[in-house]
């Protein structure tokens, strides 16, 4: 994206909102407000996308392998978020770098979630919610919530990067109806 010419592809890919960079609290808060207030004229749809955004963006801040340490400590995760607008649905996607070891359990969790009926998923959420915080297997309600809010399966993909690490993509559709 060095020149003006390379920027134009962004108009032809249905992108409503996209962001690449550090996922710190300030930017997350502003992006959340943009989603809530401007994505569509249907505030119910906006709220769904907003809820999904909060859960998934937080994962990038916490777990992305690529980190910005200018703010000190462990730093904040770097990644990409894209909301694309189609005729009947919005597609919300996030992507960030990760390692295979870290991400395999998450992908298994997605498979597990996708195999469940709505009733089962609610049961699973109740179960997870009652697990003490910090316990292994607990604290992972976020993805269940995403699936329940979207009412659609969680798609994911893992792509090997040139540096030997992996790029992990999560994607869900939110129907407009």
């Amino acid at each position: 994206m060095e020149s003006a010419k390379e920027t134009k592809h962004r108009t032809t890919d249905n992108i409503a909102i996209s962001y690449t960079g550090v996922f710190d609290n300030e930017i997350l808060s502003v992006l959340a407000k943009e989603i809530e207030g401007t994505l569509s004229s249907d505030d119910k749809v906006n709220k769904k996308v907003f809820k999904i955004f909060i859960e998934l963006a937080q994962n990038i801040s916490l777990y992305s392998l690529e980190r910005d340490v200018t703010s000190g400590g462990d730093g904040m995760g770097v990644g990409t978020m894209i909301i694309r607008n189609f005729d009947t649905y919005y597609e919300f996607s996030t992507g960030n770098k990760t390692t295979k070891e870290n991400i395999i359990p998450v992908m298994e969790k997605c498979d597990n979630i996708n195999s469940m009926s709505r009733e089962k998923l609610r049961e699973y959420r109740r179960l997870q919610r009652n697990m003490p915080a910090g316990q292994k297997g607990g604290g992972n309600i976020g993805l269940i919530q995403v699936a329940l809010t979207a009412s659609n399966p969680i798609e994911y993909a893992l792509v090997k990067c040139e540096d030997g690490n992996y790029f992990y993509i999560v994607s869900v559709r939110i129907n407009k109806d």
Partner: peptide, 12 residues
């Protein structure tokens, strides 16, 4: 009008 999943644990 909105609570995230970690808040929901505390609400429970």
């Amino acid at each position: 009008s909105y609570f995230n999943t970690s808040s929901s644990k505390c609400l429970v």
